[in-house]
C-alpha cells in the first residue's frame, strides 16, 4: 500500500480530476462491453439503437434488452463488491478482507442454493433476502471464530476462518447436489459466478438495495478513515465505533447479498479493486470508496467482455475470470506484505 501522500493541493486536484476521468474510462468500457457479443452488431447499428430504438429490429433488442441490462448488472455488481471489499478492509484493518475471502459469498450462495433447490423459494423478493441471511450468517460465523481465537482478528485468522467456512459450505453444497440432481441442474453456472441470463426483474429488488447501500457507504467513508487508523484513534476523533461498525456491517451484507443474487459468487473483485485504487488515492477512504465504486464497475465490465470472447463461441463464467485475475494478486499482496 502506498502511504498517504501529503495533503497538497496538487494531489487534491488530481483526485478530483481523476474521478471524472475514471468515469470516462468506465464509459469506454461500457461501450466495449455493449459492442461485443455472440452476434456481431455493427457500430452504426448500435448508435442507431441507442438513439432511435426500433422495437421490430432484433439488433436493437439485443442492445437494449440483452446487453445493456447485463452491462448495468456488471456496473452495479462491480461497484458493490469493490466497495464492500474496501469497507471490510477498513473495518477489519485487514488488507486481505473481501466478501469472498471472508466467506460471506459462500454463505450467501449456499443460502440461495438451499432456498431455491430445496425449499423452492424462487421469487425475486426472497432471493436477495436469502442471500442476505446467508451472508450475515457467514459474517457472524467468521467474526465469532476470529473472536474465539485468542489473539483475535489478525489477517491470518480472519482469512483462514473465511477459507474454512467456504470449504465447509462447499462440501455441504456438494452433498445437496449429489442428493438432488434435478433440482440443482440449472444452478451450476450461476454457482461459478455469471452475469449471463440474469432475470431483469431481479434488478428491481436487488438493484435499489445495492444503490442505497452504495450511497450509504460513500456517506460513511470519512469515518472509516478514522476507524482504519485504529479504534482508539477513531474514538478520540469522536466516532461512535460500535454504531459505525454496525452500519458498515449492514452495508457490506447488503452489497454482498445483492451482488450474489444478481451474479452469483464473483471472487476477488473486492480484493483487487480497493488495492488498485489505493495506489492512486492513498489511505483516505473518502476517496477510496467512490473510486472503488467507479473503477470496480469498469473492471467488471471489461472482465465480462473478456469472459464472453476468450473461448468463443463457448462463454466461460465471469467468476472464473475474476478468480484467475484476483488469485495472483492475492498471492502478490501476501508476497509483498510479509517480505
Amino acid at each position: 500500500m502506498t502511504s498517504s501522500p501529503p495533503q497538497s493541493s496538487v494531489a487534491q486536484t488530481g483526485r478530483w480530476l481523476g474521478l471524472p476521468l475514471a468515469m470516462g474510462l468506465v464509459g469506454a468500457a461500457l461501450c466495449l462491453n455493449i459492442a461485443i457479443g455472440a452476434k456481431l452488431v455493427p457500430l452504426d447499428v448500435i448508435l442507431t439503437a441507442l438513439t432511435a430504438r426500433d422495437p421490430a429490429n432484433f439488433s436493437h433488442t439485443i442492445i437494449w434488452d440483452l446487453r445493456l441490462p447485463r452491462a448495468l448488472i456488471a456496473i452495479l455488481v462491480g461497484a458493490s463488491l469493490s466497495v464492500a471489499g474496501a469497507l471490510m478492509q477498513g473495518v477489519t484493518r485487514n488488507p486481505l478482507a473481501e466478501p469472498s475471502i471472508l466467506g460471506l459469498m459462500a454463505g450467501a450462495s449456499f443460502a440461495v442454493v438451499i432456498g431455491l433447490g430445496l425449499l423452492g423459494l424462487a421469487d425475486n423478493a426472497s432471493i436477495p433476502l436469502m442471500a442476505a441471511g446467508g451472508a450475515l450468517g457467514a459474517a457472524g460465523l467468521v467474526y465469532l471464530i476470529s473472536r474465539w481465537v485468542p489473539g483475535g482478528a489478525t489477517p491470518l485468522t480472519l482469512t483462514l476462518s473465511g477459507a474454512v467456512v467456504t470449504a465447509f459450505l462447499g462440501a455441504l453444497t456438494s452433498v445437496a447436489f449429489l442428493l438432488r440432481e434435478n433440482a440443482f441442474d440449472s444452478y451450476r453456472v450461476w454457482l461459478s459466478g455469471s452475469l449471463a441470463g440474469r432475470d431483469m426483474s431481479l434488478l428491481l429488488t436487488a438493484g435499489p438495495l445495492l444503490v442505497i447501500a452504495l450511497v450509504l457507504s460513500i456517506g460513511l467513508a470519512r469515518q472509516i478513515t478514522a476507524l482504519a487508523m485504529g479504534e482508539a484513534v477513531a474514538q478520540a476523533l469522536g466516532v461512535r465505533t460500535f454504531w459505525l461498525k454496525a452500519q458498515l456491517l449492514v452495508c457490506v451484507v447488503a452489497l454482498t447479498a445483492g451482488s450474489v443474487a444478481l451474479a452469483g459468487p464473483l471472487g476477488f473483485v473486492g480484493l483487487v479493486i480497493p488495492h488498485a485504487v489505493r495506489l492512486f488515492t492513498g489511505a483516505d477512504y473518502r476517496w477510496i470508496v467512490p473510486y472503488a465504486a467507479v473503477v470496480g464497475a469498469g473492471y467488471l465490465l471489461l472482465v465480462d467482455a473478456t469472459a464472453r470472447v476468450l473461448f468463443r463461441p463457448a462463454e466461460i463464467s465471469t467468476g472464473i475470470v475474476t478468480a484467475l485475475i484476483g488469485a495472483p494478486i492475492f498471492i502478490y499482496l501476501i508476497w509483498r506484505r510479509v517480505r
Binding site: T159, I316, I320, G326, A327, P328, F330, I331, I334
Partner: peptide, 21 residues
C-alpha cells in the same frame, strides 16, 4: 499458508475452465 490459499483458489479456477471446456 496464505499463499497456499491463494494458489488453491487460482488452481480451482483453472480446473473450472477445463471443466467448462
Amino acid at each position: 499458508i496464505l499463499m497456499g490459499v491463494g494458489v488453491a483458489a487460482l488452481i480451482s479456477a483453472g480446473t473450472s475452465v477445463l471443466m467448462t471446456y
